[in-house]
Design a binder for these strands. Structure first.
Length: 460
RNA sequence: GGCCCCAUCAUCUAAUGGUUAGGAUUCCAGAUUUUCAUUCUGGCCAUAGGGGUUCGAAUCCCCUUGGGGUCACCA
């Protein structure tokens, strides 16, 4: 069985890059009828992990990802880590080191001065004497001293590290007894039965250390897939400074989960020329071995395009539901089908759509000067009056086509082009020269409101 | 700086060692539209550089250059 996991450290919200690795892990687990687990890496107690977990679950819920089982908190697994650290101690695979922080610091400075790699000098590796009086100790693991270590990565291929270049007897438990990251990750992944680790490639250089832990504890090493980072426009790792990195911000901004996931899955992965992927298509097609090796740049234009695509193809009922979050309540509006059909192809986000709807439903408070200049001419008054008269004598005005018919009538009676009536009417109804088809707008607001708006412009 | 990773249009990407290097987004132009948007059609734009290997290289190898990541009693 394939077991994957998402293991964020609690930063307070779910990062967009985090969502991507979570998505990929999720897809791979689901595709194999496996399990997708969630673990909060909160061994540093100074942070508020409760809130972080809630934020992550909320974001997962919004995009529709579901994790299996209970959320694991590392902060509540301390006894387990201690047990395994003790086991290594007992087996002589780890040892206590009584070196003080100051001594360590001094050693590193010396080494740097000699242009050597800062590295623990193993002074307590085989220490058997009596421990120095009143000294705190950390636990270090015995790492291999020479040779090479190969990470078999499903994305990068075999990555060979020279042990002397990268390893030393690293600390697995601090002086206060709390375990360190590389130790707990390995222990937890092993204990939770994780078979496929899919994570950012910033963790690639941690992997040898974790492999040392796996080996010492006799755990089987999982498959690794180190997926390339998402970069910003400067080509650097995406960070908070780059605008929206909080997943829930995308909800705020009016993006749909479908668009966001579609966007993220296409970063570093593709399937021929296909651009649009439903979740079920992703599930059917995604394989982490197909992930690209190079980093990709995050660009909003494509997200916008995807979002408008999903908006255009969304049933009105669903749109209606989503718009409520943006303050637009249409549930009891009798012309909501016409309204949504009129706006759904014109908005890139739900926020834009909400604005558009407001512009239709609310009588314009003022008129755009430039529009008046361009579209409201000498003869406009007369045309509008004629149009009002025609509207008043017309019967059964319901559909956009009904209104269109009246417009046609007036145009042909006066022997003028559509623009002659369209522009002034548009100003009357919308206050500006852009917007949805006028026939739709009139059908939505109705005859009375149409007449009132035209009247308002004429009385101005 | 050591170690590791990466390199096709501006961006996301495709291309059994043999293609006029394809698609998508952006941008530009035209068509459609009473307007704007949508939609449709078309256009601009790429194999980082240099060496090899090969009949033939975007693709394999080496070097250079450029970019990124990582080097804690953080995660």
């Amino acid at each position: 069985m394939v077991v994957t996991r998402f293991a964020p450290s609690p930063t307070g919200y779910l990062h967009i890059g985090g969502l991507r690795t979570a998505l990929l892990s999720y897809l791979w687990a689901r595709r194999n009828n496996g399990k997708f687990l969630l673990r909060i890496e909160d061994t540093d107690f100074s942070r508020n992990d409760e809130a972080a977990a809630r934020a992550i679950v909320e974001a997962f819920k919004w995009v529709g990802l579901e994790h299996d089982g209970e959320i694991e908190y590392q902060s509540s697994r301390l006894a387990i880590y201690q047990e395994y650290a003790q086991k290594l101690l007992d087996e002589g695979k780890a040892y206590r080191c009584y070196m003080s922080k100051e001594e360590l610091e001094a050693l590193r400075e010396e080494q740097s001065a000699r242009k050597e790699r800062p590295k623990y000098d193993n002074r307590y590796r085989d220490f058997t004497g009596t421990p120095p009086e009143g000294r705190e100790s950390v636990i270090r693991i015995k790492a291999p001293l020479s040779g090479t270590l190969t990470v078999h990565d499903g994305v990068k291929g075999d990555v060979v590290f020279n042990v002397e270049d990268i390893l030393d007897d690293f600390i697995i438990a601090r002086a206060d007894g709390t375990p360190t990251y590389n130790f707990v990750v390995a222990v937890d992944d092993a204990l939770m039965g994780v078979t496929d680790v899919i994570r950012g490639d910033d963790h690639l250089s941690n992997t040898p250390k974790q492999m040392v832990v796996y080996d010492a504890l006799g755990f089987p090493i999982p498959k690794f897939f180190h997926v390339p980072m998402i970069h910003n426009h400067e080509g650097k790792k995406l960070s908070k400074r780059d605008g929206a990195t909080d997943v829930m911000m995308y909800k705020q901004l009016g993006y749909t989960p479908e668009a966001l996931l579609n966007f993220l899955v296409r970063l570093g992965w593709s399937h021929g020329d296909q651009e649009i992927f439903s979740l079920s298509e992703m599930l059917e097609l995604f394989d982490p071995s197909d992930i690209n090796r190079s980093a990709s740049v995050y660009n909003v234009e494509k997200l916008d395009w995807l979002n408008s695509h999903y908006l255009k193809n969304m049933p009105n009922e669903k749109l209606c539901e989503l718009l409520e979050f943006h303050g637009v309540v249409l549930i009891s509006h009798d012309k909501r089908e016409i309204l949504l059909d009129a706006v759904k192809e014109r908005a890139k986000t739900l926020v834009e759509m909400a604005i558009l709807i407001g512009e239709i439903l609310v009588r314009p408070a003022d008129y755009d000067e430039a529009a008046l200049k361009k579209g409201y001419k000498e003869d406009s008054k007369e045309v509008l009056e004629k149009f009002c008269a025609a509207l008043q004598s017309a019967e059964q005005l319901h559909l956009p086509s009904d209104y269109h018919h009246v417009m046609e009538q007036v145009v042909s009676e006066l022997g003028i082009g559509f623009g002659k009536i369209g522009q002034p009417l548009r100003i009357a109804l919308m206050g500006k020269l852009s917007g949805p088809g006028l026939d739709s707008v009139m059908a939505i607001i109705g005859v009375d409101e149409t007449l009132a708006r035209v009247e308002a412009l004429l009385q101005r």
